[in-house]
Write a protein that binds this DNA or RNA. Structure first.
Lengths: 270, 270
DNA sequence: AGGGCCGTCTCGCTCACCGGAACAGGCCCG
DNA sequence: CGGGCCTGTTCCGGTGAGCGAGACGGCCCT
C-alpha cells in the first residue's frame, strides 16, 4: 500500500535501492509479477498484477507479452495464468526429481500397506517443503500440498530433519519464536530439544496433533550416498486408528530400500 | 558448434539482431540460461552455460547471480543447479494443479485395482504432456516422466485427446509426417483417422506396442465443467497380462467421478 | 453521457544492461 | 618450473533496451 516512503521528497533524493523488496532490474520485476500469483490464485488481470507488484502498468504489459511468448504465462480472455512451461521447468529441478523418482514406488507401497497419507519432504531454508504426497479421498479442510511449506517444529518430517540434518539447524529454528499451530504445538525450545533428542535415539520422529487436531504423523530420515541427510518420509493418520509401531516398522524397511536405490542411481553427490 | 557465421568479419558488421533464436532482451537471455539445463542435466558450470547459450560470459555471470538470489538457481561449489523455487512456482500452475489434485486419489484407486502404470495427460501444443504418473517398481529402460512430452499419434492419451479434443487438432498433427517410434507406430494419416473414429465411437482410445514394444495402453477422456475436453487418463500394461476390458470398465467409472469432482471444485472455466 | 474501470500503445529520456578485456586461481603437461 | 589452457570473477565506458507518464478506445456500470 505505501507506494513511496515520503511523497513530498524528490524521489531522486530517497534511498536509491528503495528498501522495499522491489527491484528496478528486469528480473526483479519479472519476479514480482510471477510471485504475484498466490498459491490459490488461478488467474489475474493486468491491473490486478499492477496493483500487487507496484510495477508500472506499461512495464507489466510489456513483460507479460514476453512471458506469454515464452510460455511462463498463458492467457485466456484478458486474464493471465501461470503457464505450463513453468510446470515443465519446475519438474526438471534435480533436487526434487531424483528423490521423487527414487521414492515414488515405495511411497505407493506404504500407501497400500497403511491406507494413510504418505509425505516426502526436504529441508528448504528453515521449513520443510513437500516434494510428493500419496493419499486417498480423505477430505480434510486445508490439505497439505505438493510444494507446500510447513514449519519444522510442528511436523514429524520437520523433527526428523532437525534430528538428523545439519547440526546448526536447531539453533536457527529456536532463534525465532515457535509458532503455535494447534493447542498441542510445542512452542518451548527446551521441550523441542528433548523430542529431537528422543528422535535421535529411536531413529524416527513423531508428532501428535501438533499440526492438525485429530491426526498424528511418524517420520523417518532418508540418507543420501554420502551419508548426509537429505529428506524425510512420513505417514499421517487420524489418531483413533493410527498404529505407530506398524508405521515405524514399514518406514524403517522402506527407508533402507530407498537409500540403497538412491545410492545406486546417483553417483555420489548430495 | 558454429560460433559466429564468418569468423573474419568484424562482429559489429554482422546482422545486428543475429537471425538465430537468441534474443537481446534480458528475458531472452534468462530463458536461454534456464533452458540450457536439459531434462537429464543435473548441474552446469558457468562456462558450459556460456557455450550452450551463446550469451557473453559476463552477462551469464551477472544474471546467474540474480537468479541465485531469487532461488531459481542454486549453487554447490561452482556448479549451478535449477533451484527449488522453480519447482515451487511450477506447482502453482493451475492448469496442472487443479486437475492433478482432483485426479490423484482416483489414480491411486486405479493403480490398486490394476497394479499397472496410470498416466494423467493434457494437450500442450501438438503433444501430450504428463501431469501425473502412478506406478510401481517396474524398471523399464526409458520410463515416462512427469512433465515429459510424447507425440499424439502413438500414445493412447494422445489419441483420446485427438478424438475428443478440438476439431482442428487432427489436421495440424497430420500436417507433418508422423514419427515412427516402434515398428507398430501408425505413420499413415488415413489409418490414424480410422482409429480416431473408432475411439469416438467406443468412447476410449487404445494403443498396442506403438509407443513401446511389449506394452499397450488404454485411455479415456476427462471433460471439464463446460463439457470441453481437458485431459486424458490411461492405464499402461505389458501386453501379455493386459486386460483391456477390465481397464475400460475401471476408466469409465473413474472418469465420471473425476469429472464430477472437477465440476464441484472448479466454478466453470477451462 | 458521464465516470470508472479495463487493456493497449506511443515516444523521448536515461539508466540498467552490456560485453570486451583484464584478472586470479587451479590443473595438466612439457 | 613456467607456460598454456581451462575455470570463475571483476571492471568500466558506451549505448540501446527498457522505462513509465500519459493518451486512447472499449466496456460496464450507474
Amino acid at each position: 500500500m505505501p507506494l513511496i516512503s515520503s511523497p513530498l521528497s524528490d524521489p531522486t533524493i530517497a534511498f536509491p535501492p528503495e528498501p522495499d523488496g522491489a527491484a528496478n532490474s528486469v528480473l526483479g520485476k519479472v519476479r514480482l509479477i510471477l510471485e504475484a500469483f498466490g498459491p490459490d490464485d488461478e488467474s489475474l488481470g493486468l491491473s490486478e498484477i499492477v496493483r500487487r507488484t507496484g510495477v508500472a502498468k506499461a512495464s507489466v504489459h510489456r513483460l507479460a507479452q514476453e512471458l506469454l511468448q515464452w510460455g511462463l504465462l498463458e492467457r485466456r480472455g484478458s486474464e493471465y495464468w501461470l503457464g505450463m512451461r513453468l510446470f515443465e521447468i519446475g519438474q526438471r529441478v534435480p533436487r526434487q526429481r531424483i528423490l521423487r523418482e527414487a521414492a515414488r514406488p515405495f511411497m505407493e507401497d506404504l500407501y497400500q500397506a497403511t491406507g494413510e497419507t504418505i509425505h516426502l519432504a526436504v529441508l528448504d531454508g528453515l521449513e520443510v517443503i513437500y516434494l510428493e504426497k500419496v493419499s486417498g479421498h480423505g477430505q480434510v479442510s486445508r490439505p497439505s500440498r505438493v510444494a507446500g511449506r510447513m514449519p519444522l517444529h510442528c511436523t514429524a518430517t520437520g523433527k526428523a530433519l532437525l534430528a538428523f540434518g545439519p547440526g546448526a539447524l536447531f539453533g536457527d529454528v529456536v532463534a525465532e519464536p515457535l509458532a503455535r499451530v494447534t493447542p498441542r504445538t510445542i512452542t518451548v525450545p527446551k521441550l523441542l530439544a528433548q523430542e529431537i533428542q528422543q528422535a535421535r535415539k529411536v531413529g524416527y520422529a513423531i508428532e501428535q496433533e501438533q499440526t492438525r487436531t485429530g491426526y498424528l504423523s511418524v517420520a523417518i530420515p532418508l540418507t543420501g550416498a554420502t551419508g548426509t541427510m537429505v529428506a524425510a518420509l512420513s505417514v499421517t493418520a487420524p489418531t483413533f486408528r493410527a498404529d505407530v509401531n506398524k508405521y515405524v516398522g514399514l518406514l524403517t524397511m522402506v527407508s533402507r530400500r530407498i537409500t540403497k536405490s538412491i545410492m545406486a542411481a546417483d553417483g555420489g553427490r548430495s
